[in-house]
Design a binder for these strands. Structure first.
Lengths: 209, 209
DNA sequence: GTCTATAACCGGATAGAC
DNA sequence: GTCTATCCGGTTATAGAC
């Protein structure tokens, strides 16, 4: 719930985040946000003139979390493609695991408002060209000569993100329904993805020495 | 748009599907559905007592599309794991490409109403155990001894579905923004996923003879 | 079955006191 | 800054004629 020691504005944002994430922009009610922030509705409008501005604020806060992590990863110097992929996969899965709601929230907004989200990414310091280049210059004996670097990039992202979106299906249908089992699934997820990718593109399962 | 030769009920469902898919349950207006079906609002309530019942009807129709395809795939006898994966990947990507809206729609409902969707799947003839078993009994020299079959299954599904969810990001950030380029991306997607999976689990890129 | 008109309600937003 | 009270537009849903 909402920390009672924070300022009113922080309480509002925290409450709004909870509600917006769970119900989406259209499904959320200003009344519910006010209740959860333990203030009244009028005060919401005092701090953020209307629902749309409040939503935008919350979205930008949440999305900047993702962007910062990406920027951190993309600006880390790595000695090899393998090292970069390891960095990417482990950090990404870790972040999402800590804040699983992010994925759904961003994806929903992505489809309501594609230009806005794409704009955010483009105006960040993230440069996917860097990895595409890294992948492209792998030695000729590697499997990467058969694969399009962009598809490889998409493959890696897919495997990191998708399980969090399909959580209920994985939990109920592939596993046997318990939360603990899904957590165990996540415990080994990064390792499994990494092994899968290494087998596909380096033909072995060894990290670069 | 809506076929003028269909019955009123069909027109309503077609119109409702368009609107619900684009705006979600909460974002949709009965008025817009009525306009698009070229009838008036009262008639909506005559055929489907309320918005919720109409939504449920539309969702069940759409979701049964996916289920039928899965059931078809899962009941096809294949001679090898490789053949099964090829069947799965190509059919799945094909279906989604024809009806890209399905993914987002199902995923949204999945998170609003996890039990319902999981229930649908469970009560279908789909048995993921069959593939898990197929994967598990691969020869000992295969890479599959290193990988958890469930994760392999999730990997394959992720790579098929995710691109349709992240479409705007792939289009704007990884490609250079044109729809044609995204379509070309999709043209080779099934082949790329298949090659990636084969490299990972069979150590080569050859279909079973 | 289909329509017009309207009831009933809900939710975002504002006025104005403190 | 925070509250109570209220307005007002929009949306679902129904009544009732044809």
């Amino acid at each position: 719930m909402v920390n009672i020691y924070s300022t009113t504005e922080e309480k509002i944002i925290a409450a709004a985040r909870e509600v917006f994430i769970q119900k989406g922009m259209d499904g959320s009610r200003m009344q519910e946000i006010a209740d959860r922030a333990e203030i009244n509705k009028a005060l919401l409008h005092y701090y953020f003139r209307n629902k749309d501005k409040l939503f935008t604020k919350v979205f930008e806060d949440v999305f900047s979390n993702v962007l910062e992590m990406f920027e951190r990863i993309f600006s880390t110097e790595t000695e090899s493609l393998d090292a970069f992929i390891e960095l990417f996969v482990t950090n990404y899965i870790n972040l999402i695991r800590q804040k699983p709601f992010i994925v759904q929230f961003v994806l929903h907004e992505l489809n309501q408002n594609p230009e806005r989200v794409a704009g955010f990414i483009k105006s960040s310091k993230i440069d996917p060209g860097k990895i595409i280049a890294l992948i492209s210059k792998e030695p000729e004996n590697s499997a990467l000569q058969l694969l399009d670097p962009i598809h490889v990039m998409v493959n890696i992202m897919s495997m990191c993100i998708f399980p969090f979106l399909a959580r209920p299906i994985i939990k109920e249908v592939l596993l046997s329904g318990s939360d603990e089992e899904f957590e165990s699934f996540l415990d080994i997820r990064a390792g499994q993805v990494l092994a899968f990718v290494r087998l596909a593109i380096f033909n072995n399962n060894n990290p670069t020495p």
